[in-house]
Design a protein around this nucleic acid. Structure first.
Lengths: 249, 249
DNA sequence: AAAAACGTTGACGCTACGTCAAGGTCAACC
DNA sequence: GGTTGACCTTGACGTAGCGTCAACGTTTTT
């Protein structure tokens, strides 16, 4: 038999056979005078054995080890282990399909998949104003929806609930506008201090507690990222606001 | 944010982030004076989006296409297609596990897994004699058990059934011994012709028909491989036998 | 001041082969 | 005897998604 016949017999490509030679899975047969490999029945049997193991999912390295350990009990162990591995893979694919179904269930696939409908509502209200600053907040929350743990998400959703109440939404929009106006202002601008105190007054009490307990320097690391996106004046607003809040306690 | 913080935030390695830059999945952010990449909130949101898609199983190329096609209906198509693909994978793993279970069900894992118990019995009887020639036949049948189609296997098992009957087994052993003795003989040896006619007489009728209809030159290709393993005298035995059988028809 | 912990680019490694490239060999047909 | 076509040979690059050095600069901590 030459390599093409052997390969056809086993249902693989000639490249595969040579690859197995290279890995030492299949012994190199004797050569004909012209350099062609001359296979015999034994080789076909060996190749078939290798293929049987490969087709159930053993890696070629594992197959080589198994064939080297020459037979019997070890193989059984390996196969049992493999079966467990395959079961794990099936499970994992199941999880992915579940997540996929979650994504597909959402009407808007534009990228803002969010865990809770309440959070989604808050996001919607936030972006409604068209404020650039609100957009940033929205991104923060979107991000939270994907990177934070489930329990932390729930905590934040609870925290934000007051913001979604009728009266707050409009007041929120006004505050966002005032923040937007400070984008190109100087840190010493008089509007900075004014806005800081107004913000401090308007924040719900629980959010204040959360904020002071979770200052960017220490608490949730993803919160620190936000500060770097602020203009100097805006950052100053928050520094002042925190100072005001600390005094009020 | 520097690259390490971003990566930690998204739960990936820095290498992964750089890889995404390289593939154009994530825009390169501005650099700090020292050359470090300076990420902002936007980048974290983008990275989180990429990861969500990657985690359900989209390839990075697909993700890039989806993000480029900027939003909406196309993504949904892709996800539906992906779900079908995942379902197919689960199915495939199921098939492999079934085959694995088949292998594990067998008491002897030494490599001779065979489709039918009858064939296994024939194999056992064949190797019992200790004949080298019988061993070859056994390998042929083992090979058949793995490379032939199910219907062809069944046909062969039917053909071999008479060989497993009480009387035939001993006669078979004797014939195998006589074939073994010819391993190093010359093609002109008088025992060659004698054995050829004896073989022709002893073969069950169905096997004769099958044999003549499936001569190595034309029929099942894996059969031709056998001839190359024969010594000259042994090959001569079969050539003569075929000639005798042809005349008898 | 040294060490630890970050960052930078560049390059090789991994799986199981597919797919050229550049040629030699063999049988058949003209 | 030449040509075509189907085989064979070795060698080397490409694939997906990063992990993991290497060799080096920067920032922070001890």
């Amino acid at each position: 038999m030459r390599i093409g016949e052997l390969a056809a017999l086993a249902g693989v490509s000639t490249r595969t056979v040579r690859h197995y030679h290279h890995l030492g899975l299949l012994p190199e047969p004797v050569r004909l005078p012209n350099g062609y490999r001359a296979y015999r029945l034994r080789d076909a049997v060996l190749l078939a054995r290798v293929r049987r193991l490969a087709e159930v999912g053993l890696s070629l390295d594992e197959i080589r080890d198994v064939l080297a350990d020459d037979q019997g009990k070890d193989l059984r162990e390996v196969l049992v282990e493999l079966d467990a591995d395959l079961a794990r893979q099936q499970e994992e694919i199941g999880v992915r399909r579940a997540r996929l179904a979650g994504l597909l269930a959402e009407p808007d696939l534009s990228g803002d998949a969010v865990a809770s409908p309440e959070l989604a509502a808050v996001l919607h209200d936030l972006s409604a104003g068209g404020s650039r600053f609100a957009e940033m907040d929205r991104q923060m929350l979107t991000l939270m929806g994907t990177v934070a743990e489930a329990d932390e998400q729930e905590r934040v959703v609870e925290l934000l609930r007051p913001l979604a109440e009728p009266g707050m939404v409009e007041r929120g929009h006004v505050l966002y506008e005032r923040l937007d106006e400070l984008t190109d202002a100087e840190p010493g601008d008089p509007r900075v201090a004014e806005l800081a105190t107004d913000l401090a007054d308007h924040l719900p009490e629980e959010m204040v507690k959360e904020l002071l307990g979770n200052l960017p320097e220490e608490g949730a690391p993803w919160m620190a990222a936000m500060y770097e996106d602020l203009s100097p004046a805006q950052a100053e607003v928050f520094r002042l606001m925190v100072a005001v809040l600390k005094e009020k306690m």
